Simulated assay, not measured.
Amino acid sequence: MTPVETVVAIAVPLEAEHVERIRAVDPSVTVLYEPGLLPPERYPADHTGDPAFRRTPEQEERYWELLNQAHVLYGFPNETPDGLARIARSNPHLRWIHAMAAGAGGSVKASGLDAGALTGLKITSSAGVHALPLAEFSALGILNGFKRSAELAQDQAAKVWPEVRTPPRLVNGSHLVITGLGEIGLETARIARALGMTVSGTKRTVEAIGGIEAVTDNAGLAGLLPMADAVVNTLPGTPSTEMLFNREIFAAMKPGTVFVNVGRGTVVDEEALLEALGNGQVSYACLDVFAVEPLPADSPLWSHPRVMVSPHTSALSTEENRLIAERFCGNLRAFLDDDELPHLVDPVHFY
């Protein structure tokens, strides 16, 4: 049963107004929040905070003292897998942690905690909170590719006014394939349809979805690609999705396909992507995620004339803290009522 008093500890930087929002969920909720123990944000929704911040030994002791009183944590301690591992082992009262990331499974896996160590501890992600900014970024990538923004920027830098103008492609009437028709994928599909695109995609559980022309699982992806003018990946990084976009998949695309990745970098074989860019199967790639992050300085993706490199920021927005806090408050209400929590991280598959 849920304790009469539910203690929530704020483990990451958060504005006071959102802390008060959490306090207001129920009179039984006690919120432990000491902003002096948390690193200041460098930008809105900077969950890690200023890396130069250091607690004194006394502050460090106090930080962990607060976290070890909690039944519920808002954020991973220090926003690290090591912090997650430590609190899971040191706090016997802890029942639920809400992660700031949509793809929290990677951090759970990196913590080294197995299903046994996670027994009785629920971890939820912020999946869905980032759906709109990711979908908007995906639309940006599609439009960049169709409207030749990379070539325009190169001509502008060189002060070239071509004698023979190259017409851009129409997005309206084109076809989009989305890998991962979850909340992010469906929001991307909504925006794409508003632009006049038709949409197909993949889903772990194959079922009809309104507004989506064809749905298959990832094994059927190659069958969708010959009709695609653009492809957006929203899939997380799991053993089953690793290197899904390999040479065979890129070869199944029709020449000139625009490719956008807002999922995880491990889903894409970057060497195969570079080959596809070289042979024209992919005309433009808009990439927010990479197999190794930060993207190594010697990666040819940095300087490729038809690649946009984004430093894993497409999910961010100035409203992120508010959106996550609102999601957490709804989840907290469900937790207090012993209802099912949404977006639980699978402790076996880390998804």
Rank of each mutant, 00 (worst) to 15 (best):
L14G: 02
I324Y: 04
S200W: 13
G182T: 08
A297E: 14
A228Q: 12
R333Q: 14
L94A: 02
Q69E: 12
R204H: 13
R306T: 00
K203D: 01
A101R: 07
R327M: 07
A139W: 03
P300C: 03
K147Y: 04
T124Q: 07
L224K: 14
N331W: 02
I209Q: 07
T234L: 14
G278E: 11
V72N: 02
Q154C: 00
D229A: 10
V29A: 06
G145R: 12
G36W: 01
A157C: 00
D26P: 00
Y33P: 03
P311S: 10
T257L: 11
H312L: 12
R322V: 01
A85R: 15
E183T: 12
E270I: 08
A272S: 08
R306W: 00
I212G: 09
P300K: 05
G280S: 03
R89F: 02
L14M: 11
A110T: 09
I209N: 04
Y63C: 06
E61T: 12
D82R: 15
L295M: 05
L32C: 09
M243A: 09
L336V: 11
S126I: 06
R42Y: 00
D338M: 02
E293K: 02
T198I: 04
E248W: 10
I123Y: 05
D346A: 02
T188H: 08
G210A: 14
D82H: 13
S303I: 00
E183R: 15
W161S: 05
R169C: 03
R55K: 06
H130I: 13
E58P: 10
A208S: 14
H71N: 11
N172A: 15
Q156P: 02
V282R: 13
L38W: 03
G201V: 10
E5A: 13
A325I: 08
S283P: 11
D298M: 09
F335Y: 15
W161N: 04
T198R: 15
V267F: 00
A153Q: 01
F290G: 07
L244V: 03
A52M: 00
A9G: 09
L332K: 05
T179V: 07
Q281A: 13
Y63R: 04
I10F: 06
G36A: 11
A102T: 07
L67M: 07
G128P: 06
N144L: 04
P27T: 08
M227L: 11
M197F: 13
R21N: 02
P39C: 01
P44S: 05
E271W: 00
V19Y: 00
H71T: 10
I22V: 15
F245A: 14
V4H: 10
A9R: 04
D346T: 01
A88F: 06
D337Y: 05
